[in-house]
Design a protein around this nucleic acid. Structure first.
Length: 309
DNA sequence: AAGACGAAAGTGGTTGA
DNA sequence: TCAACAACTTTCGTCTT
């Protein structure tokens, strides 16, 4: 039996074995971020059984399964043990009975704590599943995200913050660690967490858990963006070369990696005769056209590329 | 009409006194 | 803690294809 059947959520590239597989949420295709091979097989996906075909549908679906309230985890059905050492007639309890009641009280508190952590986790993991499936994040990223989230619980970082926000931040960190980064914008759009809050939670996590995250690399975005823009693998490779050349010339320091990826894709598209508009590219890279233009002008000028119009 | 261009003002985050 | 700063965004008028 193949590895994939035993563990349907995990996918590796059949060419190079890489686990950096971008799973296109709409089309059911996947693309390897290391060698650019596109796999058109139907996916066996561990995620939700539904498919969303546009943004509205996605946001509608995203509400499915969300309970109405989490404030009382068992909706008031649990038994309470009173603090007074008296029975129902108001009589004092025997010392043996008191000792037993004391033990019971302790256990009740313990089980309540455990079940609240469990409930938190159950909700968090289903939210992570949903997010990962919409963002096309493969299993290794989900695993990393869930480890981060669990550590955040241990460190009591969730208290006073929304579970959704912390899950989203964990996913963001995990995606960067696994070198399959998503932008804050993309994650924010696919969850009910605004960008600002997401950034705050992310910074809290990396600070409190002392996680070191590699600097975002523009090339990590290129294959995915190119795929979403229906560009050929060849053009994507040319874009990667452009970014590397720019890095060698020291043009990339302090610049938004997605902006650089966008500009290099724009140039590569023109050079290779697969032109896309600045607007299209800006949209998939979640930057503005202005940024695409600025980076593109810099690159063309500094790398001495002549762009045939 | 669509795309590309660039100026100007505004925003949120980082840095350094 | 505050101000200066760089990068990016928003907005908008103009030019090019």
């Amino acid at each position: 039996m193949s590895e994939e059947l035993l563990d349907p959520g995990r996918r590796t590239c059949r060419e190079c074995g890489s686990e950096r597989i971008y799973i296109d949420p709409n089309k059911g295709h996947s693309v390897c971020q290391d060698c650019g091979i596109i796999d058109e097989d139907r996916l066996i996906d561990g995620g939700p059984e539904w498919r969303a075909f546009n943004a509205e549908e996605r946001s509608k679906r995203s509400r499915v399964g969300s309970p109405l309230t989490y404030s009382v985890h068992d909706k008031g059905l649990s038994t309470q043990i009173g603090w007074e050492d008296r029975d129902i007639f108001g009589k004092k309890l025997s010392p043996a009975m008191r000792a037993q009641i004391y033990r019971l009280r302790r256990w009740q508190v313990r089980t309540r704590v455990h079940s609240s952590v469990d409930r938190n986790l159950v909700y968090a993991m289903s939210e992570l599943d949903r997010l990962a499936s919409q963002l096309g994040l493969p299993k290794p990223v989900k695993e990393t995200a869930s480890v981060i989230y669990r550590k955040a619980i241990e460190k009591r970082l969730i208290r006073g913050r929304s579970i959704e926000a912390m899950v989203a931040a964990s996913a963001y960190a995990a995606a960067r660690i696994r070198r399959m980064p998503r932008t804050l914008d993309e994650i924010s759009r696919n969850s009910n967490v605004n960008k600002k809050e997401l950034g705050r939670c992310y910074r809290l996590i990396i600070r409190e858990l002392a996680i070191k995250i590699p600097l975002a690399d523009p090339t990590d975005y290129i294959v995915r963006f190119a795929f979403e823009l229906r560009l050929s693998g060849w053009t994507a490779q040319q874009a990667v070369k452009l970014v590397k050349a720019a890095r060698d010339k020291g043009l990339t320091a302090g610049k938004d990696p997605t902006g650089l990826a966008a500009a290099s894709i724009y140039i590569a598209g023109i050079v290779e005769g697969e032109r896309r508009t600045q607007r299209e590219i800006a949209e998939t890279a979640t930057v503005t056209e202005v940024t695409v233009r600025n980076r593109y002008k810099e690159l063309v000028q500094e790398l001495g590329i002549e762009v045939a119009i």
